[in-house]
Structures are given as structure tokens and as C-alpha cells.
Computed example of a mutant assay.
Amino acid sequence: MLCFIIPLRSKESSKNWELEEQLLERTIKSLLNQENQTFKIILVYADKPNLSISSDKLLMFEFPYPFLEYKDINYDLPVSKEKLDIKWVVGEMDKGRKIMYGCKEAKKLGCNYIMQVDSDDLVHRNLSSFVDSNGNANKPGWFIDKGYIYIEGKNYLIKQASKMNLINGSTHIIRDRLIIIPDFLSTKASDFFLFCNHGYLRNKIFHDNNEELEPLPFYGNIYIASGNNQSNIYELSQANNLKNFFKLILRSKIITKSLKKTFGLNKIKLYFF
């Protein structure tokens, strides 16, 4: 059984909490839209969101451990902590701890594959069916190589025909046996950054376990982008010069009813750039 883990940022760290809640609700509806209903969703939060959704598929957990400040984080990864943005380190540590707590609860439920999903992204409605049909004890999992990028309010998607896992975190489905649940009193980043380091996750799985994740054979997700993340993607979406205009034409895909149904893509009331 596949379990989707959603780590929700704190109200304090959100630029627009009402928007955060709307994006989260759309994400959860996208997950609930799975064709095969053999799955669970775990939402881990510090501040409980106001949601209109009720489903036995959705389990909500308040993260029970104290927030870690920058000075308390042992960033024991190859890049020096001092070279990284303070807010990024704190935010990723908070996210990683919530993800791993969700993984702990997913294992208790007997979920044998786990996928972290950012609280604003959308997924293909056949993910659960695919995992159910193709998963087994020896299969380490998959990564989403192909996906779409959506600029809120537009009527098109931007196709990402390869390397989606390098630009978006909602891209890995991992066998439970490969996920080591840490001591939650630990302050070491390495204990919590498995899913956070999505650009290197495939390499880590291979390095640590000599097992290779396989690419998902279809466009698996929609990355919701704004002017507040992935500025190079956002610049492309604006088509503000001739080069970007032709790139946009080549990679654009008009949003159809079929795509909306496949990913649960609907416009929300509020958005910002």
C-alpha cells in the first residue's frame, strides 16, 4: 500500500497562510482522486490547517517535538552550514523531521511504499494503481522523471520531459525498508534529509543499498511554481523575451478536462507572485 506524506510548514514561516490552506486542500483532493483507493495520506503539521475535507484516507498528526532553531541544528552534510541560507537550513530541517515522523506513522499502518508530497503539488491519479501492480519486496521504488509545471492562474502547463526529480521534491516513491526512522531527539540533518535531498536521493539509495530506483513510465506530477520559488522556471513562464517565448511554445500544453481530472487541477481563489 502506498502512503503519501505531506509536511506542512508552520503558520509563522508561511507568507500567506490562507493561500497555504487552499493549496494544501487542492493537494489533498488530488491525492484522494486516486483511481485505486488502496492508499493512505498522512499530514504532519505544527499549526493545524482549516480544511473542509473529511476522509478515512487522511490521517493528521501534530508534530510532537520542539522546533529547532538554526543554532541547534547539526548540519552534518557535505556543504558547510555557514555557506547556506539560514532560513533554508531551518525550513528544510523542519520539513525533513515532519517527513520522517510521517514515515514512522506510515510504517505502523503497514504501508510498504512511501512518497513525500509537497503541500502545494499535484499527482497523477494512477500512482496508487501503478505501485499496487508493480511493487514487491525487492523493488526499491521509482522516481518521477517526467512531469508538468503549473503557474497559478494560467491555462497551460509547462512540460518537463526529463529530470523532474532534480527540480521538485514530490518525485520519489521509496520502499519502506530503505527508510530508516531516526531518533527524533537528534539534531543531525543527515538523520532527516532523505527526501529533502531529492536531487541526490537516487544516488544515495544506490550508494547505501546498491539498489536503483526506476523512472516512472508516465508524467507523474504537477509542480506548482510561483515567483517565490525556482526563479529560472518562473522567468521561462513569463516569456519576456523571444528566446523564452519559443521555449514556452515548445513546452506548453493546454490544460484540458482530461488533465484536470488526471491531476485534480483546479484554480484556487487566491494566489500571489
Score class of each variant (00 low, 15 high):
Leu2Cys: 05
Ile5Pro: 04
Arg9Met: 02
Ser13Asn: 04
Glu18Tyr: 09
Leu19Gly: 13
Leu19Ser: 14
Glu21Gln: 13
Glu21Lys: 10
Gln22Glu: 13
Leu23Phe: 08
Leu23Pro: 06
Leu24His: 03
Ser30Asn: 08
Asn36Met: 07
Phe39Leu: 11
Phe39Ser: 02
Ile42Leu: 08
Leu43Met: 02
Val44Thr: 00
Lys48Asp: 00
Lys48Gln: 13
Asn50Ile: 03
Asn50Ala: 13
Leu51Val: 06
Ile53Tyr: 10
Ser55Ile: 08
Leu58His: 06
Leu59Asn: 12
Pro64Thr: 11
Tyr70Lys: 01
Tyr75Phe: 11
Pro78Tyr: 07
Ile86Pro: 02
Lys87Val: 10
Trp88Arg: 07
Glu92Val: 04
Asp94Thr: 11
Asp94Gln: 03
Arg97Cys: 08
Met100Gln: 10
Lys104Ile: 01
Glu105Cys: 07
Asn112Glu: 15
Tyr113Thr: 03
Val117Phe: 11
Ser119Gln: 06
Asp121Thr: 12
Leu122Thr: 10
Leu122Glu: 12
Val123Thr: 10
His124Trp: 01
Leu127Val: 03
Phe130Asn: 03
Asn134His: 14
Asn134Leu: 10
Lys139Met: 13
Pro140Met: 08
Phe143Pro: 04
Ile149Phe: 13
Tyr150Glu: 02
Glu152Ala: 13
Asn155Leu: 03
Tyr156Ala: 13
Leu157Cys: 01
Lys159Cys: 07
Gln160Lys: 15
Lys163Asn: 14
Asn165Asp: 12
Leu166His: 15
Ser170Asn: 14
His172Val: 03
Ile173His: 00
Asp176Trp: 04
Ile180Arg: 03
Leu185Lys: 15
Leu185Thr: 15
Ser186Thr: 03
Thr187Ala: 04
Ser190Tyr: 05
Cys196Ile: 01
His198Pro: 11
His198Ala: 02
Asn203Ser: 05
Asn203Trp: 01
Lys204Ser: 00
Ile205Met: 07
Ile205Leu: 13
His207Asp: 15
Asp208Cys: 00
Pro217Tyr: 06
Tyr219Gly: 04
Asn228Glu: 12
Asn228Val: 07
Ser231Met: 02
Asn232Tyr: 11
Tyr234Thr: 15
Gln238His: 05
Leu242Asn: 13
Leu242Cys: 01
Lys243Ser: 12
Lys243Trp: 10
Leu248Ser: 08
Lys253Leu: 09
Ser258Ile: 12
Lys260Cys: 09
Thr262Glu: 13
Thr262Ile: 11
Leu265Val: 04
Leu265Arg: 10
Asn266Val: 12
Lys269Ser: 08
Phe273Asp: 14
